[in-house]
Computed example of a mutant assay.
Amino acid sequence: MPTEKNPEVLSLVVPVHNEEDTIDLFYQAMQDVKNQVNAEIDFHFIDDGSTDSTLSILRKLRDKDSHVHYVSFSRNFGKEAGLYAGLEQATGDYVAVMDVDLQDPPELLPKMLKEVQSGEYDAVGTRRVDRKGEAKVRSWFSAQFYKWMNKISQTHLVDGARDYRVMTRQMVNAILSMSENQRFSKGIFTWVGFRTKYIPFENRERVAGNTSWSFWSLTKYAIEGIVSFSTMPLTIVTYLGILSFGISIIGGVFIVIRALISNSSVAGWPSMVTIILFIGGIQMLSLGVIGRYLAAIFMETKRRPIYIAKETK
């Protein structure tokens, strides 16, 4: 008699940090769509050093459902470390990345998986078509980041793209092969290539709790993305140096010619101070940009682990 084929497995990677109010809601929402998914689902929650009762809730879920797995970090390592740990722990034929706050619509998951299972695509991601409920200033800066990032980097980022996506095992393995410490997953997802389709959806607010992403943390995250996938800031610094050098040569020639013609010394201490401050500012800016790249190299050469697991189930 022919042996019965084991069902394919979809692993859900869900990073969490102080999400005691959302985990049960997320788990229940996933039960509602579980039967619509043409695969067996297992959960891989990554507790990123939470200080509330997040870990206790995950333990209870694990006791109730053997398909629930979790990794608890020894401290907060950041969402990027959580994503990497989740992809590393996931064992399914397909892997999905989702946020626990239900801003990623669970009802899209069956369609996303079906598209990948068809073999036409290696990944199906999602993107927001609007930013309703988000502060206008934050939305504007986010749009500008995508706009300029695509201009200064060879890695194209889809505006409004979320981490929410379903990927084949082959694509996940390719992402895991990039074990760099300074991680920017949106860029990595694009850099590894593979055929990817994006499904648009309208923005949703968190179902409960508060986001841990402040404007400053998003700004630092954007800088990490630029440093990871573009050397354009270094090129701009080089051009500024050439420009300031050229201006100084022209200024020097002008001063000499003026002195020869008028036979007088050049006055204007305020303008001289302004010029010195301008050149000094360019130098400090240049050192800051170069220093940021050196800091990234410094952190990579340490070869520290991306995360440290304290508890795994």
Rank of each mutant, 00 (worst) to 15 (best):
I275V: 01
G268E: 12
S262C: 02
S212K: 12
N263Q: 06
S214F: 10
G268P: 12
F254P: 03
S212Y: 03
G225E: 05
I275W: 13
I261C: 00
I226P: 00
S230R: 01
S248T: 00
S217V: 12
M232R: 10
L277A: 15
F229M: 02
I257V: 13
F245P: 05
T211H: 08
F229N: 03
V253F: 12
S265P: 00
S244M: 12
G280S: 13
G251P: 06
I223W: 06
S230V: 01
I255D: 08
S262D: 03
I226E: 06
F229C: 10
Y221S: 06
S217D: 13
V273L: 07
S271H: 01
R206C: 01
S214P: 01
G268W: 13
L260V: 04
I275L: 12
T211M: 07
R204M: 05
F229W: 08
S214Y: 09
V253G: 12
S214M: 13
K220Y: 02
F254V: 11
T238Q: 08
I257N: 10
M272W: 14
P233K: 02
I279G: 03
S228W: 01
T211L: 09
I242N: 14
F254E: 08
M232Q: 06
I236C: 08
S271Y: 09
I242H: 15
V207S: 07
V237N: 08
S214V: 13
S248E: 06
I279E: 05
S248H: 00
T274M: 11
I250P: 03
K220W: 02
P233E: 01
I226S: 00
S228N: 02
F215L: 15
L234E: 00
S271V: 13
P270A: 11
Q283N: 12
Q283L: 13
A222T: 04
L285P: 04
S248W: 09
I250Y: 03
E205F: 04
G246L: 14
I223L: 11
I242Q: 15
L218S: 15
M232V: 12
G225M: 05
L260T: 05
L260S: 10
L234D: 00
E205A: 04
M232Y: 04
R206Y: 02
F278G: 01
I275Q: 02
I236P: 04
K220G: 05
P233W: 07
T238G: 03
W269R: 10
G252H: 09
I261G: 03
G241V: 08
V207R: 02
T235M: 08
R258C: 03
V237S: 06
I255W: 11
R258V: 07
A267P: 10
I250W: 02
I275G: 12
S214A: 15
I276H: 02
L218Y: 10
T211V: 07
I226V: 05
I279D: 11
Q283F: 15
W216H: 15
R204L: 05
Q283W: 09
L243K: 13
L234I: 05
Y221K: 09
L277N: 11
S214T: 15
I242Y: 14
I255G: 04
T235Y: 04
G252S: 07
F215Q: 14
M272F: 15
G268I: 14
L285C: 05
I279Y: 10
V253Y: 07
R258Q: 08
V207N: 00
G209N: 06
Y221Q: 11
P270F: 14
Y221C: 06
F245Y: 11
P270K: 08
